[in-house]
Design a binder for these strands. Structure first.
Lengths: 146, 146
DNA sequence: GTTTAGATCAAGAATTATTCTAAAAAAGGA
DNA sequence: TCCTTTTTTAGAATAATTCTTGATCTAAAC
């Protein structure tokens, strides 16, 4: 066995995918950056600090594997670069045009993600993406600018 | 005045932008394609039938002008090519994974687009995009496959 | 411990939707 | 008509992402 690679585990928590060093680093970075909703490039920069040999293509691969495994979520706002977030609860995303931050919006008690929409009969929603844009008015960056 | 260009009008209905031949063609194509939610390339193909000299860049320009003027809406689902739609009512979009069609979902009576979400105080939503994915089960294409 | 088959990684090329650039054409007003 | 601004056009440029290929790693079989 090579000196620079220890065994990895197939992890239940991550949808059964093999948890390689690279995937772990990518996941850790995402968890640490927390609410920042980083893009693949931003994840790459942070991942490179922990593992200088990692490549951008691998970061893309890992983000896709983790997304498919259900361990993280991909966040798309307009056609900007995809962002990623480790929050698995149903939630919407709010992009503040003033501070350029993305943050999570939770559901009200008892509400579902598609509350309010007139879905036709027989229509089965498997995934829903809600992206809002505006000004948050309360985040630190916004307060600075006011 | 050139023989192949008649006067255009600045049209109130289209947010005050100058309604050039090209913009009119693009708008007409979009209205005719109706619920198809075409991409810029698809609009280009249809527009070229009406005006063979139109270029793809112009189609992009026109779609952006019309969007900014509030005459049409840009629809983004994941990071796929943007689609465009002439429906100005608040509505969500449903992408059927079986028939690969995008269609509009209206609001229930009295509901607002952000119904159900716990927006923090002071948060001002200027725009909201709701994209659902799943199987519609009722559209012609879906019935064919079942 | 070795071997083997399949999964993953790395680097760079390729792709694709979109935007940018610069010059020509058109529009509207003087 | 002349002038200024806007729009169009064609093609180059851009940026995020995906693809390709060979190398490396892993897990399981031998």
């Amino acid at each position: 066995m090579g000196a620079n690679q220890t065994e990895t585990a197939t992890c239940e928590e991550f949808g059964g995918i093999r948890m390689t060093k690279q995937r772990q680093v990518v996941y850790d970075v995402l968890s640490e950056l927390g609410i920042n909703h980083p893009t693949a490039s931003e994840v790459f920069v942070s991942a490179k600090e922990k593992m200088p040999s990692i490549s951008l293509a691998t970061v893309y691969n890992c983000l896709e594997s983790l997304t498919q495994a259900g361990a993280i979520k991909q966040v798309n706002i307009d056609r900007e670069a995809s962002r990623y977030c480790p929050n698995l609860q149903p939630h919407a995303h709010f992009y503040c045009e003033q501070c350029e931050t993305v943050f999570d919006i939770g559901l009200q008690n008892g509400a579902e993600a598609c509350t309010g929409w007139a879905l036709p009969d027989g229509c089965e929603v498997r995934e829903i993406n809600v992206a809002m844009k505006g000004v948050c008015g309360t985040c630190p960056q916004c307060e600075k600018k006011n």
